[in-house]
Design a protein around this nucleic acid. Structure first.
Length: 678
RNA sequence: UGCGGGGUGGAGCAGUUGGUAGCUCGUUGGGCUCAUAACCCAAAGGUCGUAUGUUCGAGUCAUGCCCCCGCUACCA
């Protein structure tokens, strides 16, 4: 490995479109914070950079919906997010934001440099344009009927009802989200970053030179690289973002994924005039902490940008985490299925470290993981209270009881004492190794083992029993216990910064550097400790946990719409329009799954006049066996169409509820096949 | 469907280059009483998703299949 002189650590820029939840913390900000705090204790030169990502279409949409401006939206969330980070002790050197002038300037220059090097290609394409509002429409600004599920309010990039991803041109009856008018297709040109040209470089750099990256990251990159890269547009027609810094650019801005990672650079620039030392010296180790949704940007796109610009270093590692679930369900902002950080602190004031500890212990390092309130309670009660808090409390009580709070003399340690003293140093080596490999879960557990060692030492030496006959021995034991506690105050700092602060107060000591771990002379003989300190942790009762679980249940219920959101009734049609439809009753003769498709079933239907094949997306609701023999209603004169290579002659009718349940339509009493529906 | 990740005692996870399967919590039994009924010791509990194969030997390598997650495809 290279010999690095300094570290530059970035954590994914949170999108200023909503508050933070435990998933953000567990996946990105706590791991990065542990890493950085560790490096600082090691007296390494390190910067920890983050900020709000404030551009992009969703923010403009939210502003429009709330009748406010994009700037007001990002101002609101930026301050909520920043406050949450502060409260949880996420120790950024700077928390900036991409709406700042320094960012606009940095991103512009970045773009200009690549442009001057002919690093972009310019391409013209047809995009939807709102001629009333005089602007091009981003995919999300186009609303229309989903070609799949007929939802009339599908967005141009995705239908939120059936989940399919779309392109704007697929929408039926597209209309502009701004003026409501039908948009027209108009030519526009954009700049593209030719990722394909960087492919050979990226392949060598990642696949050959960074085999040490985590399997999930390496695998994902390999998958993208093997599939082949395509040029990616770096600009958009939008009025919120960093303007494209070219004379002929018109009202175009940099695409948000292009400007966001540059935010790391501009924040560093804002922080220190020395920023180039961190971004442009080969002996800086750049590390991006992100979630798995961001792998492709940080491992493929951003490095290609940096390389195209030419003067920057590339990340040495990108330790991406998987996702955290909540009570066995995916965390969802829109469904309000989340533990929001600001709400947590309101319910559990002063308990930042309990959440930090729990989240670290279940960090989704190798696969998705699950947060449950029960587990949170167990971790607090069994590990923080019973093991760590209790050990330190025992030491304090014993020292106060036998020595009035004065650290007794070490005296002459016997073999057992020496063994304990010598073990301390091993913890340092072990935790160090684990942190440097980004195994924070294990690192935290190993650090906590020191408290375990302390409890065991007390149980084996039993100072309370031998005090009368052998006070010197007790002095040795308690001296060592105090040294163990002082060691804890160092080794736990990356994980439990608030607790460590309290431990220092209890022992009445200052801070030590990392390399002091293992020393048994941290606290001098005669040093006075706190006589009646508060407890480090307190139990969390069942009632508190039940309250949280109820709260989640409530949000679940409020998510299930009491008045279901049905689409509005469509425009009136003439009876002659209806007459064009040939709807009939038929019987399913045969049914089978369509191979290589999850949702499709293939049927042979007796329509009364013929036997025909119909393919239908029912596989998630009915098995082939259930379907055989059923009477169904179907459209008989729909233009035949090939689905997965099978020609389908008609469409089986179902009713669909707002939550996606399907029910077949069948005649209420026995009637012949071929009977017309009208 | 294609690609990627994961599938290890009740729960959550480790298992480096193949050599007797570990950790935390929980459970059961015992010990201790300085401590927030906390702590310490011991025990029970796994044919490592599944089937073949490579090997003297496989959780660890290869291939097929099954299940879960993400992206992707399919819903006239």
């Amino acid at each position: 490995m290279k010999n690095f002189k300094r570290y530059l650590v970035t954590a994914a820029l949170p999108y200023a479109n909503g508050p933070l939840h435990i998933g953000h913390l567990a996946g990105v900000y706590i791991p990065a914070d542990i890493y950085v705090r560790y490096l600082r204790l090691k007296k390494q030169d390190v910067l920890y950079i983050c900020g709000s990502d404030e551009h992009g279409v969703p923010i403009t949409l939210r502003a429009r919906k709330e009748g406010t401006t994009p700037q007001q939206v990002v101002d609101q969330y930026h301050s909520i997010i920043e406050k949450s980070f502060q409260e949880f002790g996420i120790s950024f050197d700077i928390y900036s934001r991409t709406s700042k002038p320094v960012h606009h300037q940095t991103a512009s220059e970045f773009f200009k440099t690549i442009h001057e090097k002919n690093g972009f290609i310019e391409k013209t394409s047809e995009q939807y344009y709102d001629s009333e509002a005089n602007q091009f429409l981003a995919d999300r600004y186009i609303i229309g009927t989903c070609p799949r599920c007929a939802n009339e309010n599908a967005y141009g990039d995705q239908c939120e009802k059936c989940g399919t991803s779309l392109s704007p041109t697929e929408l039926i009856n597209p209309r502009s989200a701004i003026s409501g008018t039908a948009p027209i297709l108009k030519e526009t040109s954009h700049w593209y970053l030719p990722l394909d040209e960087w492919e050979p470089f990226l392949k060598k750099w990642i696949l050959e030179e960074h085999k040490e990256w985590k399997p999930n990251v390496y695998g994902q990159c390999k998958s993208w690289l093997d599939a082949g890269l395509l040029p990616r547009a770096v600009s958009r027609d939008l009025d919120w973002g960093v303007p494209v810094p070219l004379a002929n650019a018109g009202s175009k801005v940099l695409y948000v994924w292009f400007d966001a990672p540059i935010g790391y650079i501009s924040a560093t620039k804002e922080l220190t005039p020395d920023w180039e030392k961190y971004w442009k010296s080969e002996d800086t180790r750049l590390i991006h902490f992100i979630g798995k949704d961001n792998i492709v940007f940080h491992c493929i796109v951003f490095p290609a940008m940096l390389k195209a610009e030419g003067s920057y270093i590339l990340p040495d590692n990108v330790p991406a985490n998987e996702f955290l679930n909540l009570e066995n369900e995916k965390i969802s902002t829109s469904r309000n299925w989340a533990v929001w950080l600001h709400e947590y602190l309101a319910d559990f004031p002063q308990r930042q470290d309990v959440l930090r500890y729990t989240l670290t212990s279940i960090a989704p390092e190798t696969s998705d993981n699950d947060f449950t309130w029960k587990n949170f309670q167990e971790k607090n009660n069994n590990e923080l209270v019973a093991m760590l808090g209790n050990f330190i409390n025992r030491v304090v009580v014993l020292t106060n009881k036998y020595y009035n709070g004065n650290t007794p003399e070490l005296g002459i340690p016997d073999a057992k004492d020496l063994e304990v003293i010598n073990t301390l140093e091993q913890f340092k080596t072990n935790v160090e190794k684990l942190i440097e490999e980004f195994h924070f879960r294990d690192a935290q557990r190993e650090a906590m083992n020191i408290a375990r060692l302390g409890n065991k030492y007390l149980a084996e030496t039993e100072p309370w029993r031998i005090f009368k006959e052998n006070p010197e021995k007790v002095a040795t034991i308690l001296n060592i216990c105090i040294q163990i506690t002082a060691n804890l105050s160092i080794i736990l700092e990356p994980f439990l910064p608030f607790t460590v602060e309290k431990i220092r107060k209890i022992l009445n000591i200052g801070t030590f550097e990392w390399n002091a771990i293992g020393s048994h002379t941290l606290v001098p003989t005669g040093h006075k400790i706190d006589a009646a300190p508060e407890l480090l942790f307190s139990k969390i009762e069942d009632a508190e946990i039940e309250k949280q679980i109820e709260k989640l249940q409530l949000s679940k219920m409020s998510n299930a719409p009491i008045v279901p959101q049905f689409p509005p009734v469509k425009e009136n049609i003439a009876y002659t329009d209806f007459e064009k439809l040939d709807i009939r009753i038929g019987t399913i003769l045969e049914a089978q799954k369509v191979p290589k498709a999850d949702k499709l079933l293939q049927f042979l239907v007796d329509s009364g006049v013929d036997k025909r094949t119909i393919v239908s997306g029912l596989a998630l609701h009915y098995t082939p066996e259930q379907m055989v023999g059923k009477k169904v209603t179907f459209i008989a004169n729909l233009e035949p169409r090939k689905i997965k290579g099978i020609e389908s002659h008609g469409m089986i009718l179902t009713a669909e509820s707002p939550d996606g349940k399907l029910a077949l339509l069948a005649p209420e009493s026995e009637i012949q096949n071929g009977s017309l529906v009208k």
